[in-house]
Each structure stands twice: as C-alpha cells, then as structure tokens.
C-alpha cells in the first residue's frame, strides 16, 4: 500500500472530497486553489482558480458536473468540473465555512461564519439550473441560528434536515424547509472539526478537539458509538464498504508542532472498528496534523490531507479486503 503523494498545494489542506464514482478527488487548501486529481494514479486533472482567499470547503454534485467551493474571501463559487470555468459566484459578508450539495443535487447548503458584527448564516441556494441555467443571487432560505458558532454541517437523508455541528461540541438538527432547530444534543466537550455522513445519511461521524470521534444517529441525534484517542481530532470518515471501519485523524495543534517530535505529534490515520469500538490499525506518513480524510465511495482507497500541504492517497492491499476481525 504505497501511498501516492499529491503535491499540488503550497499550504495546508482544508478539505478533500471524492466524487460519487471515486475516480476524481478534489482538494482545497489555504493557498486559494482548488485541485482536481485522478484518484487511481494521482495525476492532476486541473485547477480551479479564482478565489483570492484560503479555500475552506469543497463539494461536488453526484453527476460530477458542478463543483462548489467556499472561501475566506467571502465568496462561494460554482464551477464547471470539466473545464474549470467559474459559472457563478456568490458574495457574502463573511467567510464561507461549508458548502454541501443536497442528495438530489437541487440545493446547495452554504454556511458562513459570524464575524465583524455579521451573524452566522445557514443559507440554501437553488442550483437546479445545472451548468447552463441561471442561478439566483438570493437564497431560497436563510436563517441566523443563535447559539455557538457552527463549524461543520451536512445534509441529512432525503434533504429533510441539515445537521450542524457547533463550537461547543453540540450537534443540531435544522429543518431544511423552515430553518427551525428541531433538536440539539451536546455530544462532545470541545469544538467539532468534521462531520461526515454515512452512505444513506441515516447516521454520521463527528470528530472533535476533545480527542474523540462519535457515530450519531441522524434522526434522533443519539450517540451510537464513541472512539476515544489520545490526540485532538480533525477529521473522521466512515468506510462505506468491505469493512466496518471508520478512519479518524488529527494530531497535535498545528501551532505546537514545531515544539515536539513527529512521534509525539501523533500524525496518524487511525482505523477503528466501527461496531466494536476497537482500534485496528494506523497509517503514518504526514509530518503535520491531519486536517481532512476522505474515503473512496467504493471503499478501495482513502486519502488524507495534512497541515504539511500534502494529500496522501492510499490504495488498500488485497489482504485489507479479506481481513476478518477475530470475534
């Protein structure tokens, strides 16, 4: 399982995403560029240039035609995946922390952060127009959720709800039609750093600075499983196939890294058994904290992006698929 090193960014990675088929990998970083890669060999397909601030987030629709990105330059942009053209740019008052296409590709969720007196917003834009259509400047829905800052968010099953993770470690269920907070549950003790849905969006995994990752049921916000580690976590992903695993990663705060050895930094991707809550393995390689993890939708490879500016794509060996957890 020799990893492929994607060296296309000059600054730390913020998010990486596979498309639905898993042949493409999109990565964004603080260096203003969105990169697209062939996931099987690490060749770069191209870049999407236009942002003038750190890009925080990226998402691709299920047909791999539209790409959305959100940046600290207070814009969210919509790109044509095939030619890299920017087809729409929305301007906001503050930085965009999260973008996410809905399950049916009709809507785009955008989270902006509160800053300089502007409140945080959760906005939903209609992107039904696709590549050719006009995209409205006005959102279909906008809410100003109260309480602690929202750091991560994702669509729930059937586009009914939006799940948002907050700075205080709580997760909230927001009705996608009305914008009301339906329920809330404080599952972590520190800020949430990532939230990724399972394939059918009925449960999701959260990672937090409190050194734990948790599986949570979407409908009830009930904690299903907990994975407790010895380091602050930045990302967590659920393996969709082959093995009942989750992959979590993180490491010492970036600001403390220079003061400690790589060994102590714990910059490893950890594999945990999803159901038995037991660690099964670790993958080393990054020399900075791991900021983001994505798993191939087919479960054949996974990629991790680190503070060190690299994306490492790992293809699993055959014995990974035949591995059986001794029960």
């Amino acid at each position: 399982m020799r990893p492929i090193l994607l060296q296309g960014h000059e600054r730390s990675l913020t998010q990486i995403k596979y498309n639905r088929e898993g042949d493409l990998l999109f990565s964004v970083s603080k260096d203003h560029v969105v990169n697209a890669w062939f996931s099987h060999n690490g060749e770069r397909l191209g870049t999407y240039e236009g942002h003038i601030g750190a890009v925080w987030t990226v998402d691709v629709n299920s047909t791999s035609t539209l790409l959305a990105s959100g940046s600290a330059d207070n814009t969210a942009k919509l790109w044509d995946v095939s030619n890299g053209k920017c087809i729409k740019s929305w301007e906001f008052n503050t930085a965009v922390r999260r973008v996410a296409f809905s399950e049916d590709d009709k809507n785009l969720l955008i989270i902006t952060e509160p800053r300089m007196g502007f409140p945080a917003t959760v906005q939903i834009f209609n992107v039904e127009g696709g590549l050719e259509g006009e995209h409205s400047n006005e959102p279909e829905m906008i809410v100003h959720p109260e309480g602690p800052k929202i750091t991560v968010a994702a669509w729930g099953a059937l586009n009914k709800y939006i799940v948002a993770g907050r700075e205080n470690g709580s997760v909230a269920l927001i009705d996608a039609k009305t914008g009301d907070v339906v329920s809330s549950n404080t599952v972590h003790e520190a800020t949430l750093t990532d939230l990724q849905m399972s394939t059918d969006r009925t449960y999701f995994i959260t990672s937090s600075k409190d050194k734990t990752a948790k599986l949570i049921e979407t409908a009830t916000l009930r904690e299903l499983k907990s994975f407790s580690t010895d380091t602050p976590l930045n990302s967590a992903a659920i393996m969709p196939k082959h093995q009942e695993f989750v992959v979590i990663g993180g490491g010492q705060e970036a600001m403390d890294v220079t003061r400690t050895s790589a060994r102590q930094g714990k910059f490893e991707c950890r594999f945990w058994h999803k159901i038995l809550e037991e660690e099964v393995g670790r993958v080393r390689g990054h020399f900075g904290p791991i900021n983001t993890i994505a798993i191939h939708p087919d479960g054949r490879s996974f990629a991790s992006g680190g503070e060190d500016g690299y994306v490492r794509v790992h293809h699993f060996d055959d014995d990974f698929f035949t591995f059986k957890f001794q029960i």
């Binding site: 639905r20 049916d104 059937l158 159901i275």
Partner: peptide, 30 residues
Amino acid sequence: LLEDWTNWRKHVEADLASERAAIGAPAPAL
C-alpha cells in the same frame, strides 16, 4: 455488539425506504 448493530441497521434502513417511498423520491443510483 454486532447483533445490536445489524438489528439497528435493519430497522433504520426499513424506515428510510418507507419514508422515501412515501415522498416518492427515487432510490439513489449508487
């Protein structure tokens, strides 16, 4: 643990399928 998990999954998947049918949304083409 494994048993509990599979039971829970069965239950959730059934719920989701019925809900999906109720609003007439197509099953995702995964």
